[in-house]
């Protein structure tokens, strides 16, 4: 399996970051960075990363199933993650979530038919003082109202 030169450079740096014989330490960040490029945890990707860090594919599976950001199925080009945890809830994060489901016609961890947008109801993302907060891929958006969400989704889908 081939990765972009940037990702290869990241992997190389990561594998050198841990004590000798501890290459397995690179596993979690490697999976996340690889998912960003490949789109999801494909069998091929799991085999490749397993081989690079010196564990079995089963061990990689065991690890990836624990972490909520690692997905076996591909998400949309724009993965919209809405926090409904307590600080966001108190600022109507739950209503924002319902609005997003209705507007996109999809539910949790589902993707629009054109593959552009996916939705996930996530736990606290560390933006509690700027609630309700969402993340589109890795970008934070603070103080989001249904209107602002609509504008954001419009601008994302126009970009294509």
């Amino acid at each position: 399996m081939t990765f972009s030169p940037q990702l290869e450079a990241r992997f190389e740096k990561l594998l050198k970051s841990y004590p000798p014989g501890r290459q397995r330490s690179a596993l979690v960040p490697m999976l996340l960075y690889a998912q960003d490029e490949v789109g999801s945890m494909t069998d091929e990707l799991i085999d490749e990363v397993a081989q690079r860090v010196g564990v079995t594919p089963l061990q990689v599976n065991e690890v990836l199933s624990y972490y909520s950001m690692l997905h076996r199925k591909p998400m949309g080009k724009y993965h919209v993650q809405i926090c409904t945890n307590i600080s966001c809830l108190l600022n109507d994060g739950d209503k924002l979530w319902e609005h997003a489901c209705k507007r996109l016609g999809i539910g949790n961890k589902e993707v629009t038919p054109d593959g552009q947008v996916s939705l996930e109801e996530v736990e606290c993302m560390g933006a509690c003082s700027w609630a309700p907060a969402i993340q589109v891929n890795y970008d934070f958006h603070h103080f989001i109202t249904p209107e602002k969400l609509d504008q954001l989704l419009d601008s994302l889908t126009k970009k294509q």
Partner: peptide, 23 residues
């Protein structure tokens, strides 16, 4: 070093497991 989404990894010994490439 990046995590990948797990509240539990904020607990010190779970964090160390995660740092070592485990659940």
């Amino acid at each position: 070093h990046s995590g990948a989404g797990a509240y539990e990894c904020g607990e010190e010994s779970a964090l160390l497991e995660s740092l070592e490439g485990k659940r």
